[in-house]
């Protein structure tokens, strides 16, 4: 079994985890162009090298960040999302009044 180190639960079998996609900036859905939205939703760097991604430890429902090498299949580093995000991020709700944000 391949082992991943969960920042909350320690080393666990990789089968306990779910891949959640690249860590990337979401454009504001109300303001961005269709092309920018398509870029965000469908297009990908799909890089060969070290990538920074969201992962979920399913038994504990805990999301965290992993740095992983997509050629060697090595997990370089895993850490709590608070290491990267110091502030709460509020996403704009589509159609809501912008003044409220």
């Amino acid at each position: 079994m391949k082992i991943m180190h969960c920042p909350l639960n320690g080393p666990r079998n990789i089968s306990e985890f779910v891949y959640g996609g690249d860590v990337r900036q979401m454009p504001q859905p109300d303001e961005c162009t269709d092309k920018a939205w398509a870029e965000y939703v469908f297009y990908a760097d799909n890089r060969a090298g070290v990538v920074t991604e969201w992962w979920l430890h399913t038994p504990s429902g805990y999301w965290f960040i992993a740095e992983r090498h997509t050629v060697t299949d090595d997990i370089v580093r895993t850490y709590d999302a608070s290491d990267m995000f110091q502030q709460r991020i509020d996403f704009m709700v589509a159609g809501s009044d912008k003044e409220e944000q």
Binding site: K2, I14, S15, Y19, V51, T70, V71, T72
Partner: peptide, 13 residues
């Protein structure tokens, strides 16, 4: 496979 990779290894899983 459950996650992206440029590698043709086989897995026990």
């Amino acid at each position: 496979d459950p996650y992206p990779l440029y590698n043709t290894r086989s897995t026990l899983e």
